[in-house]
Design a protein around this nucleic acid. Structure first.
Length: 482
RNA sequence: CGGGGCGUAGCGCAGCCCGGUUAGCGCGCUGCGUUCGGGACGCAGAGGUCGUGGGUUCAAAUCCCACCGCCCCGACCA
């Protein structure tokens, strides 16, 4: 029998060095590679395919809720970017500038978009005249540049891909409704497609988007106990409409500033999938976003090309017909054992092995990536059984991640205990908080933990602030984060 | 941007202290053959601006300076 450790010799164990484990997975599975410019990466076909599946699931939901895609320019005139004071202040440290076109110095510098509120605001002011033009519901898929000091593949790169929704509404209520609708959409997406349970709620002022009235977010818990912001939905109020003069004549024939929202999710989600589900053997991909959902490995013995391959080929065709993304690995230069390990590392949810014994008995051995469980299934049953198995794997990955998050979410009232848990176990800590920025800052200074979200409950909280012992009106989830 | 570590073949590393033939090893890669139900084996091969640029020296992977990149730990952020 094969010992466990033989399978994993290529990857640093997760428990030994999480960061190293993460980077090794990204590179060894050929998801991405470092580019010549600091902080920039190439997304290779395997990684890009995961992103494409994320895109399609998200794009479908965005369209189903009435939004249309459009595309705005990469460059933003400096004067536009500087209109919203808080926005400029927030983004200035990480904006890349174009100062020259060809050999000519530009009269006005151009910002490479760090986000598109400014450029979109300047266009919306031209398009919106009447309440009849509202709501305006636009999304764009784009690349973004933020000059970050510390980068990590997928999680934080200088350039990244994302979608950003930018909507305009007649009333504050409608804008708020939109903000919450998208927050719910993001949560549902993360949980059903990525199999990552997320907390959702509102950000503290300290953590909110530069220029927003309020920021809502979904937060996932990664395998090392650190939180990751996975999507944000902002209620922009009238901040941008006032500076970009986005005005409309309302139903009472008075001129009003419009109410806006913006929201985004990015290629960071690919990193979230790796860090939520991966294990010591490599990736474990949720079937819904896996580039390959099922790999068929024929056991290459003797005259296998005549005796086994036809059956394997028929099986592959049958699965493809039932909508499964299947790959028949008929490479001759690798042994079956090598292929098993390789596909496990790449996170393929389900493997089907077919050897001489299986052909004889009309079966195949199915091996789940999530549990490692093996079972023999009849070939006839597979076109039905495989989609069910994939769903079961999807559900199990979600449940495992949920168990992990539950085990690592703690209610704490004592600050000493808080510090101890953050230091030793990490995870989410739900604690009473007075609502003061000063306490939040001190907690960050002293423990490196920040408020991830403040849950959206109507319930009143009893007790006193964990840090200052004033009366706490609310509870907040704290964690160390990426 | 601060503190620490690292950069030698595609990947992982040795060599560097104490400068001195053609710069090594494992894996991977190429060819041929035997194999193949959990990372096969034999034989033959290919592959290197020793991160980049300067300097010291008769001589630099090795010593000195600068720069670049990556990783970790902090300050800032999808």
């Amino acid at each position: 029998m094969i010992k466990e450790d033989r399978r994993v010799k290529q990857i640093t164990p997760k428990s030994e060095d999480f960061s190293k484990w993460y980077v090794e997975i990204i590179r060894k599975t050929e998801m991405a590679d470092y580019a010549p410019v600091k902080g920039m990466m190439v997304i290779r076909p395997y990684g890009y395919s995961i992103w494409e599946h994320i895109q399609s699931g998200l794009d479908r939901r965005i369209k189903e809720t009435g939004h249309s895609n459009a595309y705005f320019p990469l460059f933003i005139p400096e004067s536009s970017l500087q209109k919203e004071a808080e926005h400029v202040e927030g983004f200035t440290p990480e904006v890349a500038w174009v100062t020259q076109g060809g050999t000519e110095e530009l009269e006005e510098r151009l910002a490479v978009r760090p986000t598109s509120e400014a450029i979109i605001g300047s266009m919306y002011s031209k398009w919106i005249k009447s309440y009849r033009d509202l709501p305006l519901l636009i999304n764009q898929w784009a690349n973004i540049v933020r000059w970050e000091k510390v980068t990590r593949p997928f999680i934080r790169t200088t350039e990244f891909l994302w979608q950003e929704g930018h909507t305009v509404h007649e009333t504050a209520e409608e804008a708020q409704e939109e903000t919450m609708k998208i927050l719910a959409l993001y949560k549902e997406f993360a949980e059903t497609e990525l199999a990552i349970p997320v907390l959702s709620g509102i950000k503290s002022d300290r953590e909110k988007f530069a220029g927003a009235e309020a920021t809502y977010a979904i937060e996932g818990l990664m395998g090392d106990g650190k939180a990751l912001q996975m999507g944000t939905s902002h209620n922009l109020g009238q901040h941008f409409s006032k500076v970009f003069q986005i005005r409309f004549e309302d139903r009472e024939q008075t001129l009003q500033y419009a109410w806006q929202t913006s929201w985004g999710m990015s290629t960071r989600l690919v990193g979230a999938v790796v860090m939520s589900h991966g294990d010591d053997s490599g990736l474990r991909l949720p079937p819904r976003i896996a580039p390959i959902q099922v790999v068929i490995v024929p056991i290459s013995i003797g005259d296998w090309k005549e005796t086994i391959l036809p059956t394997a080929g028929k099986l592959a065709a049958g699965l493809k017909k039932s909508g499964v993304r299947v790959y028949l690995d008929q490479r001759e230069e690798y042994t079956p054992g090598w292929k098993f390990a390789d596909w496990e590392m790449r996170g393929v949810p389900l493997r089907l092995e077919i050897g001489p014994r299986d052909v004889k008995s009309g079966q195949a051995v199915a091996v789940r990536r999530d549990t490692g469980a093996k079972e023999s299934l009849s070939l006839d049953s597979l076109p039905q059984a495989v989609p069910e198995l994939l769903q079961s794997i999807q559900d199990n990955l979600f449940n495992q991640a949920l168990d992990f998050r539950r085990a690592n979410t703690r209610s704490v009232c004592d600050y000493e205990e808080f510090k101890k848990v953050i230091e030793t176990k990490r995870g989410f800590l739900l604690v009473p908080w007075c609502g003061d920025r000063a306490c939040e800052d001190k907690i960050k200074e002293e423990t490196m933990a920040t408020i991830r979200v403040i849950p959206l409950t109507e319930e009143k909280t009893e007790g006193v602030c964990i840090r200052c012992e004033k009366k706490a009106g609310q509870q907040a989830y704290f964690a160390r984060s990426y």
